[in-house]
Simulated scan of single mutants.
Amino acid sequence: MSQALTVDSVVLDIEGTTSATGFVVDVLYPYSRSRFGALLSERSGDPDVARAVAQVREELGDPSADNVRIEKALNAWLDEDRKATPLKTLQGVIWSEGFARGDLVSHFYDDVIPALRTWHAAGVRLHVYSSGSVAAQRAWFRSSPEGDLLPLVEGLYDTENAGPKQDPASYRAIARALGLAEAPERVLFLSDRPGELDAAREAGWRTVGVRRPGEPYYEQGVGDHAQAGAFDEITLFRSTP
C-alpha cells in the first residue's frame, strides 16, 4: 500500500527491511563464526574486543572464562540468533574488516537505494537503528553494490548506544539524540518486526511496517501499523519546525 508522509527524519531497520535476512544468515553469520577464534586470540588488546569479551564473561557469570569458553558462547548465541550486544560488537569488528578487504559486499533490495537517494535529496534526514553494531552498520552502508552510501546517513544506532529494539525507551533516546524529543511524531521508523514498530509508536514515532515476501515476519504481518511492500511505495516530504 502506498504511503505519503511528512517527517523530519526516517530511521531504518536493516535486516528484513532494507536488506535480505537470508544474506545476513547465510553469508555474514558463517563468515563471523569462522573468525571468532582468531579474533579472540589475536586482538585481545583491541578496546572493542576487550570490552565485548568482558561483557560475554558477565553474561556467562564467569569472570575467568577463557577464549574457548567465550567462542563456544558466541557460537551458541549465533545459533539462537540472539541479539546479544557483545556478539554484535565482535561480529561488527569481523565484518568491517571483511568489507574493507573486499571479501564482503552488502545486500540491499533493489527499491532501497533509489528511495534513500530520493528522500535524502528531499531533505529528509536518514538514520539507522539495527541490532547489528554501529561498526557493522558503517561497513554495511560503505560497501554497498553501488558504492559508499554512508554520506546519505546522519546517525547510526544499535543496542549499545540506544538500547533494546523492543523497548520504547530506546526510541525516546534516539529522538533526544535527533533533537526531536518534544516532537517524536516527526520521526518515521521502518521495520519488518511488529514488536519494534509497537515500541516506536509507543514512543510517539510514526511507523510503517515493511512486508517483503520470503522474509521471516512476512506471514505474521505488522499488526495495525501502516504497511508497504517496498520502499518505492513510500513517499516522504521534509517537515519544517
Rank of each mutant, 00 (worst) to 15 (best):
V56H: 07
A52G: 13
P86C: 11
R206H: 15
Y109D: 02
G123W: 06
T159K: 09
W205V: 01
A135T: 15
E59T: 15
Q166G: 02
I14L: 14
P151D: 05
H107R: 09
G221N: 04
R82A: 13
R186M: 05
S106L: 09
T240K: 02
L90E: 10
T159M: 08
A199K: 02
L116S: 03
G16D: 10
V112D: 02
I14N: 01
A73R: 11
S143A: 14
E185I: 04
G102C: 09
V56R: 08
E42M: 04
D192T: 04
R206I: 09
P47S: 15
F141G: 02
H225P: 00
F23E: 02
H127G: 00
P145D: 03
V24K: 15
S143D: 06
R172G: 06
D46Y: 04
F189K: 00
A177Y: 00
R57N: 09
L28I: 03
P47L: 11
G163Q: 10
A136G: 07
Q137S: 07
H107K: 08
R201G: 09
R138E: 15
V7R: 00
R43C: 13
D110G: 06
G163L: 08
P168K: 08
A20E: 01
E215M: 10
E182T: 13
A38V: 14
L150Y: 07
A135Q: 14
T159E: 12
S44Q: 11
F189L: 12
S106I: 05
E196R: 03
L5K: 05
K88G: 12
Y31Q: 00
L87H: 11
A139H: 12
T21W: 12
S130K: 10
V134M: 07
R101C: 15
F99L: 01
P194A: 09
D26Y: 10
W140G: 00
A100G: 03
D48E: 15
G209I: 02
V187A: 01
L90W: 14
N161R: 07
G102S: 07
F141H: 07
P216A: 12
I174D: 02
W119P: 02
L180H: 03
E185T: 04
S170H: 09
F99G: 08
R35F: 13
